[in-house]
């Protein structure tokens, strides 16, 4: 066993400063190999940080937020599904774990039923139908623009003290105002999926075929299944497919096209016809049928304005040289060649 030599504090401080020699580094390395020295290492690191501040963080403000979070997870205020599950550290199973797992599932169930039974009572509902968009100004100055066939739930009696929360089904653009006390703004979708921000601009898409978040400005955190989360930067688009629910990150540019729907415009970028069909269905509520599997391969690009399903059908048929049959609730797309045969 090697002796546990002590090390002068100033040598470690030099190292923190990046001024230690390679011999000194070796010395520190050997010293730190004794686990009991780790405590002192971090203590000195903390002391060094105190003496070399780079800026003055606002501890009090941040502490208020942290206190809010602690009080929040005590009670059962708005159902935040992933309150209880974040990363596990070393998987030591102790007696607390079981107890907390049970408590967690109870909170989870309470949360779930709260969503279903209390939503109508506690939340005011804003809804759009086919081909409609709607702009809503919330009490905190945040502006939400709903795309067609979407619903936004806003707390009827104002936001909670600790954070602002709304629920979205469908697609919407959020321009979130930054509050003086840095309150978080959380958009919850129906599943184990929410987006959390301070003040920023983003588009959230949460429909049957998947989820999508496009960030224009600021930063957002996306929580998805079992406490996993991702941080986005401006220009990021993250897509979750309903099938595998794995995140896919893309850079989008230019960003503004993803809220083209605000002006009843459609933006396609080499988009497969099947997806174009989904978008038309989401927007106008008409079923789109591809009569021929070869049509799945066709793709569409461009920026179109259309107020009715007929208009968009016309554009597509002209561009791709295909024929489209319209009934009241359906658009059937044919390949002209196969029809002619």
């Amino acid at each position: 066993m090697k002796m546990n030599t002590s090390i002068p504090k100033n040598v470690l401080f030099d190292f923190f400063e990046g001024k230690a020699t390679s011999l000194q580094r070796r010395l520190i390395e050997e010293w730190l190999a004794h686990p009991e020295n780790e405590i002192l290492y971090f203590q000195w690191l903390n002391e060094w940080e105190s003496q070399h501040p780079q800026y003055m963080p606002e501890t009090e403000l941040a502490l208020q937020r942290f206190k809010g979070l602690m009080n929040d997870s005590d009670s059962q205020t708005p159902p935040r599904i992933n309150d209880v599950s974040t990363e596990q550290l070393t998987p030591t199973i102790n007696r607390f774990w079981r107890k907390w797992a049970i408590a967690a599932s109870i909170i989870f169930l309470v949360g779930i039923s709260a969503i279903f039974f209390q939503r109508t009572l506690r939340y005011e509902r804003f809804q759009t139908g086919n081909a409609q968009t709607k702009s809503i100004l919330l009490s905190d100055g945040t502006r939400v623009t709903l795309n067609a066939n979407s619903t936004l739930y806003v707390p009827r009696w104002g936001f909670a003290k600790t954070h602002r929360q709304v629920v979205l089904e469908g697609e919407a653009e959020f321009v979130v105002s930054h509050t003086v006390d840095h309150q978080r703004f959380v958009v919850q979708t129906d599943d184990d999926f929410n987006v959390e921000v301070l003040g920023t601009e983003f588009v959230l898409f949460a429909r049957e075929r998947g989820k999508k978040v496009i960030l224009n400005k600021g930063s957002v955190k996306v929580h998805y299944q079992e406490g996993k989360q991702l941080a986005l930067k401006p220009g990021d688009m993250i897509t979750f497919n309903t099938l595998d629910n794995r995140p896919q990150l893309q850079k989008v540019n230019p960003q503004h096209v993803h809220n083209a729907w605000k002006n009843h415009q459609f933006y396609f970028d080499n988009t497969p016809l099947s997806e174009v069909g989904e978008i038309i269905k989401e927007h106008f509520g008409v079923e789109v049928v591809l009569a021929d599997t070869s049509l799945n391969q066709r793709r569409l690009s461009g920026y179109f304005k259309a107020d009715t399903p007929q208009e968009i059908a016309q554009i597509i048929s002209t561009l791709l040289n295909i024929s489209i049959e319209q009934t009241e609730k359906r658009l059937v797309i044919h390949n002209p060649s196969s029809k002619n045969l």
Binding site: E38, I39, Y41, F42, Q43, N46, F66, L69, M70, S73, D83, V84, T86, E87, Q88, L89, T90, T92, N94, F96, W100
Partner: peptide, 17 residues
Amino acid sequence: NFWQNRIFERITVSYQA
């Protein structure tokens, strides 16, 4: 995370570390 997962119950050596 420290609060929500009750990490503090599992700290044996040093909170600071």
